[in-house]
Design a protein around this nucleic acid. Structure first.
Lengths: 347, 347
DNA sequence: TTGTAAGCGTTATCAC
DNA sequence: GTGATAACGCTTACAA
């Protein structure tokens, strides 16, 4: 009964172009023009309108209605494959977010965060269920399969995929990461640190932290090639190990690698395992042994593992550029220098 | 001339409720109901509609149009005072973002990031200028003055302010941080570490990293009170220092504090300065001297300074709850234990 | 259970 | 330089 008691606080009429027009006795078009197309208007009348708008507390054209009418939103969406809560744990995702945020601030009206995982397909939305997929003017999808990116934007040309396999649809832009180049750089770095006997651990089926089902072996190969080219003659031995080695395997490997000054793994999980076991065995890292991995998983940062990371900081800017121009490009991975590498010494 | 060459790729008619209705020879209402109000429909017909929608590649109701019509958006906006590029550097902002993201994923359709700084007032938007303020269903504003939060949401009841002074408008929800409680905890912690002679540095006008113009002294007082209660008899001396002390001042202070085992500052800037100079003087931290600050500025993390941080991880959940229920609550600050504190020893 | 009609707030088109 | 009209895609009383 008394639910409208406080209505006086809220203006009964929401201020809109129509109300301003009515107030001034002119047409809605003219008011709209005053905001969106100043050149269509005598500047005198424009001032008058702007003035009246301010007086009426009009906050400006509603972005929602604008988007609906114009068919484009001023938001750019950043889409992750996993739940946001999970994705934002990754240093890669954090850096990507920061760079997208920074770069988008110039030309976009807002940054929309969403995850493909949390967005059930729109059609399943019930009456009380939360709304489904967001709509944006542009979409940047990180580690999301091409198929899952539909529906967020109106045109495929407004999509750019980061990482993963190249999109089938040629209209979709693509930023690729070249981890092999990073591996090459990391290999060279080890050589420059004086390492002359580096052992490499290869994981036959290796999909690491990149949730891509397909080019796992291929990617592993590329990384291996990158490392071996970077290391040159310093690469003295190669092991094959499963991605989640047992303690025993690690101990054996470390024994075999006794006269190696560094161990390079093609993934972080293995590198972290060796790192942990080596410490347990009393091997000082990096004084006696340097260890590097690939992927920059969250644990790598915590453990201080030197590793190769997807170049997310540059990816943000690049993606935004590609959103405008379209096209594809490949970015070299970056080396994350941390505490598990140092000058070569013998054990 | 040939700009429409590839039109065959894009369906000439965008799929919409109307097109589905036309296809099936029924009314738009029924189609809409099939998606938004399943109970208004025979499940048989509903299936038929959903089926046809899928066949036509209909991605579901356009959130934009839905929002416009229903007058509420399914996005929740997280608003920062500074540019996103700047804000996201802060550990506090990162933690807040993560917690809001996690908590919002359950009930909201997307998370909109924006900064009050980057949003010029709507009315200034030119014809080609990017759209102005985003519109959301709910707004969480962190370190943003109450006045700058208008226009993002349609109703004041859909706003919650985090930090800063209490909002004037009683409809706006508020999450307050109690740094004094954190100071108390940190003081106790020092005592528990065995410190019996703790010196305190007070900064008369102290607004630290909280861009609030007003209760600077008051806040400083509260923090001091918190510390002194937590420290009890261990608090043996208090200095007054400006927020950005000179090197000379630091050296003098460290000399005077020679028989203190710990120094507590009411802000990070001072603590960091003392921390740096102490190291230069060869004082081992934390072995010989523990130093703590307040605020958890980015540099504090890098320097490994133990400090008090705004409890952003819990703030996200709390804010989201308050968005629904309204109201106000106060959260105790958290102690960020880092490397600048350790057991008490004498110098 | 289904259809009709009237919007939500804005802007593009085309007359005047 | 200005104004009427018709959308944009959807929802929701209310009537059938």
């Amino acid at each position: 009964m008394f639910e409208h008691m406080f209505d006086y606080v809220i203006p009964m009429t929401v201020t809109t172009v129509a109300s301003i027009a009515a107030r001034l006795g002119i047409s809605r078009t003219t008011v709209s023009n005053a905001f969106s197309r100043p050149d269509q208007l005598s500047s005198h009348l424009r001032q008058e309108i702007l003035c009246a708008a301010q007086a009426l507390g009009y906050p400006g054209p509603d972005p929602l209605a604008q988007s609906l009418r114009r068919g484009n939103s001023s938001y750019v969406a950043l889409l992750f494959g996993e739940e946001l809560a999970t994705s934002l744990l990754t240093s890669a995702a954090q850096r990507l977010l920061a760079s997208v945020a920074a770069a988008s601030e110039q030309h976009w009206g807002g940054l929309l965060l969403a995850s493909a995982a949390a967005c059930r397909p729109r059609r399943a939305a019930g009456p009380t269920g939360r709304a489904s997929q967001p709509t944006a003017g542009g979409l940047i999808a990180y580690s999301v399969p091409e198929q899952a990116t539909g529906g967020f934007v109106r045109s495929p040309g407004k999509r750019v995929l980061i990482g993963g396999p190249p999109p089938t649809n040629p209209e979709i832009a693509w930023v690729q990461f070249d981890l092999a180049l990073g591996a090459h750089a990391l290999g060279r770095h080890l050589v420059e640190l004086g390492h002359r006997s580096v052992h490499m651990v290869r994981t036959p089926v290796f999909s690491a932290s990149f949730g891509w089902p397909e080019p796992a072996e291929a990617m592993g190969e590329h990384i291996f090639d990158g490392f071996s080219q970077g290391l040159g003659a310093a690469l003295s031995h190669t092991y094959d190990l499963c991605a989640v080695p047992t303690r025993k395997q690690c101990v054996e490997l470390l024994g075999t690698a006794e006269n190696a000054t560094a161990i390079a793994c093609d993934n972080d999980a293995t590198a972290l395992a060796l790192h942990a076991i080596a410490k347990q065995l009393g091997i000082k890292i990096p004084e006696q042994l340097s260890i590097v991995g690939v992927g920059d998983v969250p644990a790598a940062r915590l453990a201080g593992l030197t590793t190769i990371s997807e170049p997310c900081a540059s990816a943000g800017h690049t993606a935004l550029a590609l959103l405008a121009e379209g096209g594809r490009c490949v970015l070299p991975a970056e080396v994350m220098m941390r505490d598990s590498t140092g000058p070569a010494h013998s054990r």
